[in-house]
């Protein structure tokens, strides 16, 4: 644990960026964006994590001081939930655009989807 998991999260982020930058297929680019999203969400969850921590839900009869000592930070989890919702909206939009792109260009290859001049 410790630093390793942060390194792995960073690696996941790099994989996503690689897919977005290097791949030329619209679907693969979409998957790359999703991987970036997941990496960032994972990072946010890790920020709020504490080793051996419990869920941040106050159980009945549990003293508040003990709860505050053991629970993980709930705020990053709320952030992640919001980020997932945003990611959902963006994914739906990306997929819808990919369908329309296919209808217009009859291809998913970004090298051929290039009518706009530099």
């Amino acid at each position: 644990m410790g630093i390793t998991i942060y390194v792995l999260t960073f690696a996941l982020l790099l994989i996503g960026i690689y897919a977005v930058v290097a791949k030329k297929n619209v679907v693969k680019i979409i998957v790359g964006v999703l991987v970036i999203d997941y990496a960032v969400n994972l990072f946010l969850v890790l920020v709020g994590y504490r080793t051996g921590g419990g869920a941040p839900i106050l159980a009945e009869g549990q003293p508040v001081t003990e709860f505050a000592r053991t629970a993980v930070d709930p705020l990053p989890q709320a952030m992640v939930l919001t980020s997932i919702v945003i990611g959902l909206g963006i994914t739906a939009l990306m997929v819808a655009m990919a369908i329309r792109l296919w209808e217009n260009y009859r291809t998913f290859d970004m090298n051929e989807i290039r009518r706009l001049r530099g």
Partner: peptide, 17 residues
């Protein structure tokens, strides 16, 4: 239109990153 979707898709990908 084709060009508009192309621009919007590029914008979407870069904006999301």
């Amino acid at each position: 239109e084709a060009e508009e979707l192309e621009a919007a898709f590029k914008y979407l990908i870069l904006g999301t990153v």
